[in-house]
């Protein structure tokens, strides 16, 4: 399965070109777009994600338009059911649930995208170097990746997330600040999330570096950095994009779990995960508080997974050909 995914872009272009001969006038890019459009779940997912992203971005505007304050605690309006003033009701501190969901979406989406990006960057860098240079560095990186993949990561992440940063010399007010708790969770997830990309990129590089054009570039005196950056990386983009998209969903799940357990994003900053922390206590009296944040996590994660699946079909025509047969 992985072998099919790591199919280098060079071969896909070749295949795309040969099918272009059947359908004249279509560039490889247009063909990719066409294949993507045929994957209905992916198209729907993309639309849902754009809508969610826009709504989260527009949270301050919606807040002003509703005439409410998302952070205003009102102990006389605790856990109200949905009403005209609060379309989704209020949470256990009387804050408007819809607005908290939108602000929480900003945090969850930003953490998901940022951590997936950093993990992909680390994985791409390590995979490129390991695949190109080989030798002891390659075996060390791959051994490390295999070990990290097999470990029970959640308890380890919980230990790492529980570290008191002020004991590392950070000033206490900084160690508990909102920004640092965001950076910390992004860093932690990137630290364990690079493995899949690294293996895919290494696999692609291993086959690419034997190609004539790479050998030609080397014979012409291109330095290793140039070979990797100009000749290898662009042809390994497809598997990287697919793996990164698929990992966003996992990252959002992981962030929500850690925040739910009280070790990720700290209240009062809302994230979809930490909004569910108190849900088990209010489940008898206000079940809607337990439904909405989880539903949004679910919808977002499944959308990213479908999107990744669609991108794989679009960018990796070999998989497409296999599907058709």
């Amino acid at each position: 399965m992985t072998a099919a995914r790591s199919d280098p872009g060079g071969a896909s272009d070749l295949l795309a070109a040969s099918s272009a001969a059947v359908q004249p006038g279509l560039s490889p890019m247009r063909l990719r777009l066409r294949r993507f459009r045929r994957h209905l779940p992916a198209v729907v997912s993309l639309a849902v994600l754009i809508l969610l992203g826009l709504a989260a971005l527009a949270a301050p505007l919606i807040e002003r338009w509703m005439g409410l304050d998302a952070t205003a605690v009102d102990l006389f309006a605790r856990a109200l059911p949905p009403s005209a003033r609060h379309p989704l009701g209020t949470d256990e501190l009387g804050r408007d649930l819809l607005l908290r969901l939108l602000y929480g979406g900003r945090v969850s989406l930003a953490v998901g995208l940022a951590a997936a990006l950093f993990a992909a960057l680390i994985g791409t860098g390590l995979g490129l170097l390991a695949g190109y240079y080989g030798g002891w560095f390659d075996s060390a990186v791959m051994r490390l990746a295999d070990t990290v993949i097999a470990l029970p990561l959640l308890p380890l992440l919980i230990v790492l997330a529980a570290v008191d940063l002020s004991k590392l010399g950070l000033p206490p007010e900084l160690a508990t600040s909102e920004e640092v708790s965001l950076y910390r969770i992004v860093g932690l997830i990137a630290l364990v999330g690079w493995t899949v990309t690294a293996r895919l990129v290494r696999g692609a590089v291993l086959s690419l570096k034997r190609r004539e054009y790479v050998l030609a570039a080397e014979a012409l005196g291109a330095r290793p950095a140039r070979v990797m950056w100009v000749h290898l990386l662009p042809n390994a983009v497809s598997p990287i994009v697919v793996a990164a998209t698929l990992s966003v969903g996992n990252v959002i799940l992981l962030e929500s779990v850690l925040s739910f357990l009280g070790l990720g994003i700290q209240p009062p900053v809302p994230s979809w995960g930490n909004m569910l922390t108190g849900a088990q206590e209010t489940i008898w009296s206000a079940p809607w508080l337990a439904i909405w944040p989880g539903l949004l996590i679910f919808v977002t994660v499944i959308a990213f997974n479908f999107l990744g699946d669609g991108l794989q079909d679009a960018l990796d025509p070999k998989a497409e050909a296999e599907r058709a047969s």
């Binding site: 779940p41 969903g249 799940l253 929500s256 779990v257 739910f260 995960g273 569910l276 849900a279 088990q280 489940i283 008898w284 079940p287 337990a290 944040p293 989880g294 996590i297 679910f298 994660v301 499944i302 997974n305 479908f306 699946d309």
Partner: peptide, 25 residues
């Protein structure tokens, strides 16, 4: 496939909350 995608996308703690809500509450 849809069922499988739903399975891998469900936040496990939320699934637990839903099961408690349905079968226990």
């Amino acid at each position: 496939n849809l069922f499988a995608f739903a399975g891998i996308s469900l936040p496990p703690f939320w699934l637990a909350i839903l099961l408690i809500l349905l079968f226990a509450v």
